[in-house]
Amino acid sequence: MKLTVNGTEHEVDVEPEMPLLWVLRDELNIKGPKYGCGIAQCGACTVHVDGMAVRSCQLPVGDLEGGVTTIEGLGTPERLHAVQAAWVAHQVAQCGYCQSGQIMQAAALLDLNPEPSDAEIDAVMSGNLCRCGTYPRIRAAIHDAAQKLSEA
């Protein structure tokens, strides 16, 4: 089976029902997407499929249609995506484990809605669980990233 992740095509020999998350983590050694719950309750595994946020723990790899982008493909430490830069500026992460998913979800949000209100941020980001309680800074960082993106 072939799949494209962060622009690179990979060939994997796995059963089609294996969730994309475990293909990424255990077959391709792409560790940015995290396992937190396995049932779409935490969002730590969020990736983009053709630009749309998807919980990779829910997607059987056999049903994958489109290119996958993980946090590693969104931006790098040397070339941060605006959302990542805002996350750093606001010192959002504590343990950081959920933040790959939070950042991927926030980037997808800003792609669809460049100027989200607080209520819209609440509606989109409440599917991503953070047990450390970084929510106030996530809100602030998304507004900041939205502004930076609109100036760009």
Binding site: E72, A93, S100
Partner: peptide, 21 residues
């Protein structure tokens, strides 16, 4: 005062126990 692990945690490059390979 920036946290020294912040950049890694915002780029998916922090290696947690579960990420050891």
């Amino acid at each position: 005062l920036p946290r020294l692990d912040m950049l890694r945690k915002c780029t998916g490059t922090e290696v947690y126990g579960i990420d050891m390979e």
